[in-house]
């Protein structure tokens, strides 16, 4: 803190991206060390700076395992056919891609890596937006046999510079488990199609990694009621 050392702009940028990524994993429910989220710039530089002052992206990749609570949340309701369902979540692999442009080849290599490492899902953070064809592959990847089970998410560094959920105007989003979702529908005598919706491409939905069909509870401040909860069905 006291040192007058100045760091390169790209290092500071990546430090902020790194912290937001860690916070994102924590907010989703993965086990993330407290000190990782609060990593100072000095420590970050000490760990990941190359000699020329630029960050070394190949060292920053990390994996995270889901916490107990998250496992529970992602476990579907047991049925007669499947009395002991497996949780729909697993280890996540976060990679910071150093390439200037990410195309089909990089994305395919990344998917291959996820499958080889037996990761359930993956997050790729790239410096610039991907090519159009890579986006097309990504869109179809959930149905693709070669990709990982939990799918791949791609973020641009630009979007992770700031943690959007910390903004004053962004209300709290809480993901409901399938059990909670069922109770909600019974309580209000609704079908899920009658809920308000949220797109999975919504910034907060992307941050939380929502999947189609999940329900989030949104808790806002209200002048009259104190707190006001509403529910959104991710589509």
């Amino acid at each position: 803190m006291d040192s007058g050392e100045t760091y390169s702009a790209s290092l500071i940028r990546l430090w902020r991206v790194y912290r937001t990524t860690k916070e994102m994993c924590y907010d989703r429910g993965y086990d993330v060390a407290e000190e990782d989220m609060k990593l100072t710039l000095q420590d970050f530089a000490a760990r990941y700076m190359r000699e020329d002052g630029e960050p070394d992206r190949s060292k920053i990749h990390f994996s995270a395992i889901p916490s107990e609570a998250m496992m529970k949340k992602y476990t579907p309701i047991p049925t007669a056919k499947d009395p002991d369902p497996t949780p729909q979540i697993g280890t996540i692999w976060v990679e910071f891609n150093a390439d200037e442009n990410v195309g089909l080849k990089q994305l395919r290599d990344y998917m291959q890596h996820l499958v080889n490492g037996a990761y359930y899902s993956g997050v790729m953070v790239c410096t610039k937006a991907m090519t159009g064809m890579a986006l097309r592959l990504l869109r179809g990847s959930s149905s693709l046999a070669e990709g990982p089970k939990g799918g791949v998410e791609v973020f641009v560094e630009q979007d992770l510079l700031v943690n959007i959920t910390k903004h004053e105007l962004v209300p709290k989003h809480v993901l409901l488990s399938s059990e909670e979702k069922k109770q909600l529908l019974v309580r209000y005598r609704l079908k899920e199609t009658q809920l308000p919706r949220i797109q999975v491409t919504d910034p907060v939905a992307k941050y939380l990694g929502l999947r189609r069909g999940q329900v989030v509870k949104i808790i806002r401040k209200s002048e009259t009621a104190g707190r006001y909860a509403s529910y959104r069905w991710a589509i």
């Binding site: 442009n101 195309g103 089909l104 080849k105 990089q106 090519t131 159009g132 064809m133």
Partner: peptide
């Protein structure tokens, strides 16, 4: 054009 772009990235 996308094909050209992808091949160039390669």
């Amino acid at each position: 054009d996308s094909l050209l772009e992808e091949r160039n990235l390669n």
